[in-house]
Amino acid sequence: MLLPVASSCGTSSALAADAGHGADLAKRWCASCHVVASGQAQASADVPSFASVARRPDFSPERLALFLLDPHPKMPDFPLSRTEAGDIAAYIGSLRP
């Protein structure tokens, strides 16, 4: 049962993700700490901007979506659905130059 779930986070789900919805979610939930869009004036100094995350050479929307679903100490535990995590990852991916 784990295999179908893992494969659903693959390339096909990333292509189906909604970057526009991800931008809306990021502005609502992530902008208090991260710079999520150009023109944003304020964020925490010790966290990466979404643009810098997108520029990382090892960036992968699929890996980022999985990262967002896994609780980790430095970030608040947001109750994101798989779709929402995929949408935020797609938005960040859209910021790649």
Score class of each variant (00 low, 15 high):
F67I: 07
G39L: 01
S52M: 01
L2G: 15
L80Y: 14
G22P: 09
L64F: 13
L3Q: 11
G20L: 07
A16S: 12
G22R: 01
F59P: 09
S8L: 08
R55T: 09
H34E: 08
H21Q: 15
V53C: 02
A6Y: 14
A26I: 02
A54P: 10
V47W: 06
L64E: 08
Q40A: 09
P4H: 02
G86Q: 14
S32D: 12
G93L: 02
K74V: 12
A16G: 09
A17W: 06
L68C: 09
P97L: 04
C30M: 00
K27M: 10
F78L: 15
L66F: 11
S49T: 15
G39A: 06
S94Q: 05
F50D: 08
A16V: 01
R55A: 15
R28T: 13
G39F: 00
A43N: 08
G22E: 09
R63H: 10
I92H: 04
D18R: 00
S13G: 15
A43C: 08
R82I: 10
A45Q: 12
V5C: 08
C33N: 04
G93Q: 04
A41D: 09
F50P: 10
P61L: 05
R55Q: 15
H72G: 13
F50A: 14
L25C: 03
T11F: 08
G93K: 01
K27L: 11
I88N: 01
V53Q: 01
D87L: 07
A89L: 04
A65G: 07
A19Q: 03
L3A: 14
A23R: 14
P73K: 12
R82F: 08
S52A: 14
V36I: 13
P76G: 07
T83I: 09
G39M: 03
Q40W: 03
A16E: 14
A89S: 12
Q42C: 02
A85N: 09
A41G: 14
K27C: 05
T83H: 08
T11L: 11
G39K: 02
H72K: 13
V53R: 06
A26Q: 03
M1P: 13
G10I: 01
S60R: 03
V47S: 04
D70S: 12
P57E: 13
A37M: 02
S81P: 07
M1W: 04
S44Q: 13
A89Y: 05
S44D: 13
R82C: 10
M1V: 09
S44M: 13
S49E: 02
D87S: 04
R56L: 06
